[in-house]
Write a protein that binds this DNA or RNA. Sequence first.
DNA 1: CTGAAAGCGCTTACAG
DNA 2: CTGAAAGCGCTTACAG
Lengths: 361, 361
Amino acid sequence: MSITQTQIAAKLGVSQPAVAFALSDTPQALRQLSTETRELIIQTAQQMGYVPHRAAQRLSRARSDNRAASFDQAGFIYLGGAEQDIDSICLTMMQGVENELSKLHASLTFVRVCEPGDWKKVERLMRGSGVDGWLLVGRVNDEVVDRLNSAPLNGIPYVILGDHRCTRPVHSVNVDHHAVGRLAVEHLASLGHRRIAILKGGTDFVYQRQILEGFRAARKELGLEDEERLAAHASIWMDPRNGGMKITDSAIGWLKQNGLLPTAMFIPEPGSAIDFDPVLKQWEVEVPRSMSVVGCGFTPSRAAGQNSTFVEWPIAEVGHQGALLLHRIAAEQNAASVELKIPPSLVKGWSTGPCNMEPAK
Amino acid sequence: MSITQTQIAAKLGVSQPAVAFALSDTPQALRQLSTETRELIIQTAQQMGYVPHRAAQRLSRARSDNRAASFDQAGFIYLGGAEQDIDSICLTMMQGVENELSKLHASLTFVRVCEPGDWKKVERLMRGSGVDGWLLVGRVNDEVVDRLNSAPLNGIPYVILGDHRCTRPVHSVNVDHHAVGRLAVEHLASLGHRRIAILKGGTDFVYQRQILEGFRAARKELGLEDEERLAAHASIWMDPRNGGMKITDSAIGWLKQNGLLPTAMFIPEPGSAIDFDPVLKQWEVEVPRSMSVVGCGFTPSRAAGQNSTFVEWPIAEVGHQGALLLHRIAAEQNAASVELKIPPSLVKGWSTGPCNMEPAK
DNA sequence: CTGAAAGCGCTTACAG
DNA sequence: CTGAAAGCGCTTACAG
């Protein structure tokens, strides 16, 4: 069924190891064979559709563990009960990871860990030499990291994707949420807006706090109005059962009645901005004429709203970089801890425009 | 690092194959060793934390392919550009699959296929003997199935999870969507409702049509009012960019003005029912006093709304059964095609109650 | 009926 | 410098 090195060797009348050397990149291989033979072998292998037997490769490599060369199996640990609506973010990250791994001819094993007993699965995979490195997504904290650092799980490198709550030094890749808040403000400020509100979904989660920080820092630096009541009273209600966010229209009413209506609003919860339009209409606020709105979103299919302006979270890129980082630290035994932040980008749409009005006093 | 059979053998002063036999379930193994020795070996292996080396097992099994015994690697193919908001459904299915596979000591490899070139990844995995069977989720059609049935991918069993558009006989597992529609009607009818509307999100997708069929069949069988306008004019607007559903409140207005307001409503799109409450309030419809609402949802965390009544789609169970089916057909070479339908269940909540009023004429 | 040998498909150290 | 041998950790057919 599948082609083996031995079959190729037989066809060309060379030894099986000769084929192995021709197909490897080790410095030794180059002098083992004439360039001519090497080329011939490579060509033949290709046209016969040769693909190395994964299990055989892994087993063989077990002899002399060359950590650099033997990275071909990553594990994706989804730690359930996560903060935030992690599902679609998680899948998008996985796609980014898988995409990058496939270029390295490595594959991705999915493991879900929800209760303590589930760590047995991780341990089993590790003991059976089934995985060369872990990617962690979800509820990652010191307890999880301690588990991975100590016997019997230690020795396998890991990288955390997305938000986490670890205090120990770890390798991680995440969206630069600080920059998310900053980017929204900068865009709106460039359009002339000076009274910019943020519609928070809460401050419980790491990303929420980081976005808020970035938002405030940028607003301060640019000398914009810093009306705390704008943030305090406009809040997004989050329904944990649904994973969705709803805007409390009472917040808008309050702002309007108190003459605090901003000329621009930033809605950081991904996909929430689209809910906003009908609520605003109800209060006779027209987007973008009387108010600009910047939302958040990720991946083409999950934008904040139909062609509206939003800050795009580079979730897939987090996956890509996570895979690359894991591959790197799997090779270099003890690399210094890396916390990578991927910058978001602004996608301009119809929901933002120049500031036409003086903010209501 | 990891324990091997040889190490166990050395410790007990038996041969390595003796250990192998003790740990296997083959009939031959039983007579090879005394029950006593066998027990001792098993015990020792366990307390030494022995886990078979996956790659070694696979490689060794390659010699005499006993298809039944050598199932330990499934591949999960996510076919992108799917209909419906598949992401969270997909992840829930994966969890179900992984859960079941882990009991079989098998693991799950994630592969994303979005463009034709991505099939190279599938082919590579197959040629490298990296996978014993496939689970397919997403945009599955005849073209995909033909690909898996013909060289160079053929010979590996596969099961489709969720909706698909294949006309050829295939193995598949899905929610019984027909029963979803039926269940909603039956519950509402049992509460005395006779004018029951369905708020369709569309009829483009397979599941939408099946739910509608089930809904209508049940309504007919139970002799309930069959006012087509109820369905025709109450529609859910779906925003593909967001993956979310929104209810057009104009539909409610139309129904009310025309005296067609039903006493109960079924909202089949998962997670949409929660959006409904504020819209209904706006039209002075109070749930459940003047109208009962049944939504849809899946997995505990994705119910249709906070403690509201909904039909639960057994998505995780689809994953479970899919894994089991794949395992089965991987063993029995050519099993007849199986299309498994998993029945949904009704979760009762606050949003439904007895029919108090005569429907408006 | 028992027990040690062959072999899965690779990688690479190591004899010649 | 070359080329065939050893070995990774298993499974199970096959000599004795």
